[in-house]
């Protein structure tokens, strides 16, 4: 009984020695990890701080857009709703044309514009071009009083979404041309809201990335707005997907 026990004891001692030896060996061979590993390690240790910073960043961006789209109530009180709408459009680097005039007012690349538009008091706007601006749902409130607006171009606006389209009913009696092409946030569910614009003559829905099955949607839109000429380019109507399925079937058949 005693002999095996002693041998066990010896084994344990040796194993302890081995462990100790391995530890020494391992500690001596550790070199500092590469820089990117250390950076990632640092970031994971600071997870909540990084999260906070990122959320502050997105909050700031949102607040900036909100500020640009604020309600121009002060201008409206001083100069009337038409001037307020014009000022809002120009400060967002858009362009517009008054009713009965051929001259367009536009802001240049750096956001500078001609203040001559102040001379036309109480003249409503007829055409508005807000392409590639950050106009959003709240900003649309500045244009609410424009009962003579006939053309509105919103090409490539990143903040134009379905809710924005639903709010376009404020121009339901006057709007004839609408361009919402290249707006990334518009989906099929929002296009249904265009039913309120019964006076629409021309609609551009080209290259909307949020639309699934664009062919069907365009047909349904044409059905919904029978007097409207719908322009929808930039979609791939080919049957590539189906062909892909067919090749898969074919492959399965081969197997």
């Amino acid at each position: 009984m005693l002999v095996p026990f002693m041998s066990l004891q010896r084994c344990c001692q040796r194993s302890a020695l081995l462990i100790a030896a391995r530890r020494q060996w391992s500690s001596s061979s550790v070199s500092p990890p590469p820089l990117h590993t250390r950076l990632l390690l640092f970031l994971t240790q600071r997870f909540y701080d990084v999260e906070m910073l990122l959320s502050w960043g997105s909050q700031l961006r949102r607040r900036g857009i909100q500020k640009k789209n604020a309600y121009y109530g002060y201008t409206q009180k001083l100069y009337g709703s038409d001037i307020a709408a014009a000022y809002y459009i120009l400060s967002l680097k858009g362009g517009f044309r008054y009713v009965g005039q051929s001259e367009w007012f536009r802001a240049n690349q750096r956001g500078k514009f001609n203040w001559d538009f102040l001379k036309h008091k109480d003249t409503p706007l007829e055409e508005v071009n807000m392409s590639y601006t950050v106009i959003n749902y709240t900003g649309l409130g500045n244009l609410e009083g424009q009962k003579a607006l006939r053309t509105l171009s919103l090409r490539g606006c990143p903040e134009v979404d379905d809710w924005f389209l639903a709010r376009l009913h404020i121009f339901q009696d006057s709007l004839e041309e609408l361009d919402i092409s290249h707006c990334p946030r518009i989906t099929t569910a929002g296009l249904a809201a265009l039913r309120n614009l019964k006076g629409l003559r021309r609609l551009d829905v080209s290259s909307l990335p949020g639309i699934s099955s664009p062919g069907l949607v365009v047909i349904l839109l044409e059905e919904m707005l029978p007097q409207c000429q719908i322009n929808a380019t930039g979609y791939d109507h080919s049957l590539r997907q189906e062909r892909g399925e067919r090749t898969e079937e074919h492959m399965e058949g081969q197997r």
Binding site: E51, S55, A192, A193, R195
Partner: peptide, 23 residues
């Protein structure tokens, strides 16, 4: 619901698509 992604968006996750049908 209009600003749902500002309220309920989670960092590093997909934005929420409520599929809100404007009718």
């Amino acid at each position: 619901m209009r600003n749902i992604n500002e309220h309920l968006g989670v960092l590093n996750e997909d934005p929420i698509d409520l599929q809100f049908n404007q009718s």
